[in-house]
Simulated assay, not measured.
Amino acid sequence: MFLLTGEQAWNLPDKYIASGGRAGDHHPDNATYNWPSRTRLLSSMLAQHRATPRRWLEVFEQAATPTIP
Score class of each variant (00 low, 15 high):
Leu41Pro: 05
Leu46Cys: 01
Thr67Arg: 07
Met45Ala: 06
Asn11Gln: 14
Ala64Phe: 15
Gly20Trp: 02
Asn11Ser: 15
Gln62His: 12
Met1Gly: 01
Ala64Arg: 14
Ala47Thr: 07
Ala23Leu: 14
Thr67Ser: 08
Leu42Gln: 10
Phe2Met: 04
Pro69Gly: 13
His27Gln: 13
His49Thr: 07
Gln62Pro: 04
Asn34Phe: 12
Arg22Ile: 13
Val59Ser: 04
Gly24Tyr: 02
Arg54Trp: 09
Leu41Cys: 08
Ala47Met: 06
Ile68Val: 14
Ile68Thr: 14
Arg55Ala: 04
His26Lys: 12
Ser43Val: 01
Thr67Pro: 07
Phe60Gln: 12
Leu42Arg: 03
Arg50Leu: 15
Trp56Gln: 09
Thr39Pro: 02
Arg55Asp: 03
Gly6Arg: 14
Met45Leu: 11
Asp25Met: 04
Ala47Asp: 05
Ser37Lys: 11
Thr5Trp: 01
Gly20Cys: 05
Trp35Lys: 01
Thr65Met: 00
Ile17Arg: 11
His27Ala: 13
Pro69Thr: 09
Arg38Trp: 06
His49Met: 01
Trp35Arg: 02
His27Pro: 08
Asp29Glu: 11
Gly24Thr: 06
Gly20Met: 04
Arg54Glu: 09
Ala64Lys: 15
Met45Thr: 05
Ala64Cys: 14
His26Val: 01
Leu3Trp: 10
Arg50Pro: 08
Thr52Leu: 08
Ser19His: 11
Phe2Glu: 03
Thr65Ser: 02
Lys15Phe: 06
Leu57Tyr: 10
Ile17Cys: 13
His49Ser: 03
Arg50Gln: 14
Leu46Thr: 00
Ser37Trp: 05
Asp29Gly: 08
Pro69Met: 13
Ala51Tyr: 11
Arg55Leu: 04
Pro36His: 13
Ser37Thr: 12
Tyr33Val: 10
Thr67Leu: 00
Ala9Arg: 08
Met45His: 07
Ala51Val: 02
Leu41Glu: 06
His26Asp: 05
Gln8Tyr: 00
Val59His: 01
Glu7Gly: 03
His49Lys: 02
Ser19Gln: 15
Phe60Ala: 15
Gly6Trp: 13
Phe2His: 11
Gly21Ala: 11
Leu4Asn: 04
